[in-house]
Amino acid sequence: MTVALAFEDLSVRYGAVTAVDSVTADIPLGAMTAIVGPNGAGKSTLLKAALGVVSKAGGEALFFGTSLDAARAKVAYMPQRASVDWDFPIRVIDVVLMGMQRDLGLLRPVRAADRSFAMECLARVELTDFAKRQIGALSGGQQQRVFLARALAQRAQLYLLDEPFAGVDAKTEAAIVKVLQSLRDEGAAVVAVHHDLASVPVWFDRVLLLNRRLIAVGPVGEVFTPERLRETYGGALPAMQIA
């Protein structure tokens, strides 16, 4: 098992509140891992702290055994859809090309090969026909798929997704799962902050249960148990969700 991402004693504090408390866990390549826990459990914060988007109060995150700076080319991040302004005056294809910034640099013109690779990424999320639309003209699910296409354009080995299934339609859900599974089958590590407990055993191989501190991490069959979930959700778990 090759470790793509290792949280080592990682903590985050907002003022006096401890949002993430000394989490240590390994995320392997070739698997889809769900990060699961109640609202305010620090799921998104854990990813953002590892990526340096929010500052760590302690501990560290190692990417492929090294620092994020040394491994950036292998890491793709898909933020929550609500984190950006979708009225921004830009087309779908231009957002996907942002994923290729490491190749494009400051002034290198976008060549036909770049454009056709961006179109391939759009095809994988079934948005070929939308390349020239303004992003604000898309539905929420389509916008989510644009973000996924931008992540694909990075040709990474570790994909960190913040709530990729939040508020999307069934078609988008199926399209995103298909793409993530194909990435996994190609050997990449996929990590998603996830809310719908019922779909965890169906889609994911591994699960990381989090409620500020780490409850458990491992294969779904071993870790995704009613006892552990009750521990994670502190008894606030609706019975039907454990089915």
Binding site: K48, L51, G52, V53, D69, R72, V75, A76, Y77, M78, P79, S83, V84, D85, F88, I90, V95, M98, Q101, R102, L104, G105, L106, L107, R150, Q154
Partner: peptide
């Protein structure tokens, strides 16, 4: 003109731009 791409990327999605190393 020189910093157009980083400017646009950081203005649209600062989190994503930061992870790319901008």
């Amino acid at each position: 003109w020189v910093f157009w791409r980083p400017l646009v990327m950081a203005s649209f999605d600062a989190g994503h731009a930061a992870v790319l190393g901008l």
